[in-house]
Design a binder for these strands. Structure first.
Lengths: 205, 205
DNA sequence: AGGTTGGGTTTCGCATACAATGTCCGGATG
DNA sequence: CATCCGGACATTGTATGCGAAACCCAACCT
């Protein structure tokens, strides 16, 4: 795995974990030194993170950890409300038994993580679950568009994970049931309910 | 404007114009020499183009111009069908008189381009129109997601531009009317009709 | 006192150089 | 004759160096 990709993963993790606060100036020299690499992989990683929306880029000024205001969070949920039900509907039509098994395995891991209060792992499992649904949709372009969105959603999810987690995973189970039954309409509806609930639970501005 | 961004624009243009065929191996040395820059800006540009989906990246093997198969085209239209009506609905609610004027200006330029048969310009105007609608929606996150999608759509649009253009721009005019009237429901419906028509007109596999 | 301008410092942007890996072709071998 | 191996070449990955633009702070002028 190229250093560049490791830098991408590491910096993204730092942002998602909250160790890099929004607005922070990502200085290439500093990052390179901290990660023990040269500036070149860092520069390329920053381009990728910029395209993913985790950092905002300003020519000749550098990269800054993106800020996600309350308004932008509502914007985010609007888009999610358009894409998630689509993914769920397609997944219900396209997913086979092995795909459903993958989802159920994630549900099980989430149940364990919830019992022992592993909030950080729970946030990652949430991302993994939604990304998996999109992958099961069989729509490659949707995956390209939605996976970065899911990653970005992880950022928001962490903020309300403790309060929302039980309901959230109950809704996930309902969605898996619908997909397992191959009921596209129901899956779409469950997905919509889930996103609306997530939006409602998000701390308002 | 940094060289890197100029390289992004130039290579993207080459791909959209069809001068770089799908599957072509983008060799950093060659590109750098052709564009008269060093490899470093080229490398960073390739990351951006990879994130935008115009090239597919393979570690240690390089970047290749993306191929858009017929199936992937249908995938693309599914996503577009989820996002475009959303953008149109939001734009109808948020766009002011100046925003509508911008759209009408694009319509006028397209009318001129169509009369003199400027197909290439027409394809760019199509992208500009749809991107503008998304921008008028006021949803910044939607813009981030949808603008790359529109660019990618330009790729498909060129293939059917001659046949579809008159109908397409008629539909665009209907959409602008709905936005101008602030009728969110109508705008959403017009947008949906437009995307469905585009999908139907696209050469099937 | 507030704004402005100047220089020093920081940081980005680009180029060049080197290392590592993948690819491809020719030859040896079963 | 097919197959496997090896080495040269091509290409990507990484590091370093230098020039230029932006930033910061202090001294100066209005």
């Amino acid at each position: 795995m190229p250093l560049r990709d490791m830098v991408v993963d590491e910096v993204r993790r730092l942002i998602l974990d909250g160790q890099l606060h929004p607005g922070t100036h990502l200085v290439e020299d500093r990052l390179a030194e901290q990660l023990g690499v040269s500036r070149n992989p860092v520069r390329e990683a920053i381009r990728v993170l910029g395209a993913e929306g985790f950092v905002t880029l300003s020519a000749r000024r550098g990269a800054f950890v993106a800020t996600l205001s309350a308004i932008e969070a509502q914007d985010f949920f609007d888009v999610r409300l358009a894409l998630e039900p689509l993914g769920a509907r397609l997944a219900a039509k396209a997913a086979g038994p092995d795909g459903v098994a993958q989802l159920e395995e994630i549900l099980e891991r989430a149940r364990v993580a919830m019992e022992i209060g592993e909030h950080s792992a729970l946030a990652e499992l949430n991302s993994e679950f939604h990304a998996r649904v999109f992958q099961l949709s069989g729509n490659e372009y949707l995956v390209c568009v939605a996976v970065p969105m899911v990653r970005r959603g992880q950022w928001l999810f962490r903020q309300s994970v403790a309060r929302r987690a039980p309901d959230s995973w109950t809704e996930h189970r309902s969605l898996v049931s619908a997909i397992k039954a191959g009921d596209a309409e129901l899956a779409e509806a469950e997905s919509r309910r889930h996103v609306l609930a997530a939006r409602a639970a998000f701390p308002r501005s």
